[in-house]
Amino acid sequence: MSGGESPSWNCPLPEAESEVVRLAAGGGGRAMQRLLEEVIRPLLDDPELARAHDGAVLDPGGEIAFTTDTFVVRPLVFPGGDIGALAVCGTANDLAMCGAEPLVLSLGLVLEEGLPVAVLRRVLASVKTSAEAIGLRIVTGDLKVVERGRADGLYVNTTGIGRLRSRHRIGPAAVRPGDVVILSGDVGRHGIAVLAAREGLGFETMVATDCAPVVAPVLALLEAGVAVHCLRDPTRGGLASALVEIAEAASVRILVEEAAVPVREEVRAACELLGFDPLHLPCEGRFLAFLAAPEAERALGILRNFAVSREAVVIGRVEEGASGRVLLETPFGQERPLDMPSGEQLPRIC
């Protein structure tokens, strides 16, 4: 325990009425019960959670997909979203990338002592809204509180289970020469939105995150019987890392037409200024789909019915060649390799 007052000597003010999360709320006692009962459970509002048992009992029926992700974004709230929306969409999207329909999620929270309860409420409300929009349930969870200075306010882990909706295994191993690469929308907005909010960069045009669930368009593709070979959401490392990972795993060469990749003008401008490559910036509501070229038009037709993938376009193609490389075709008819970013993206001097 850190110096200062011991949690057992805290003023017995009800936790939910005080302004900030206290260390005592992680102690497993009454204070934690109050936080759970007065703040967390009402906001998440699920019968399985209301049973207040050690875990949830499920019958998914058939093959499942299972994934986990931990969210440590700073700041917790940024233009167009917050860590709650990110935690739900991130894991739901990962399930969708497996060709699965997300069913249930667990929610693990690590709160830092001193976190305003109002922030916690906002994040949980957006967890709930995002989950409802996708049609998935939060059925179990965990809560820890750590001392002030030991976390950036709030960390979230979500683990999800989804029911497999694809008739065949979706993944890099299914990618074939002759496939086209479809990108569901513009790239780079999430990276710029978070960076600008974190560093207080006063851009003329505010860039909002693209954070959104991509479950509906993916399931629509699968229901229509489009033979999707591989799906991938370009989160950390951006489009470049997603493409390189697939090219390497599938031992193919991917050619991307640089001018075909949609990037918002304000994202381009911010990248020019900071020395970033938009293809290296994370997206949180975008995905890549690899499928046989003759299927492309039908797939685009389906994707463009959904707001989140209205700007879906073919950005490239898969070719023979076991180089595991991604080549970018520049507007001047040149080719250059596209690589993953190396380490941390650092803004440049001039």
Partner: peptide
């Protein structure tokens, strides 16, 4: 490195 090195591999 960023814009050229993969060519030798290709």
């Amino acid at each position: 490195y960023r814009y050229r090195h993969a060519e030798s591999l290709r």
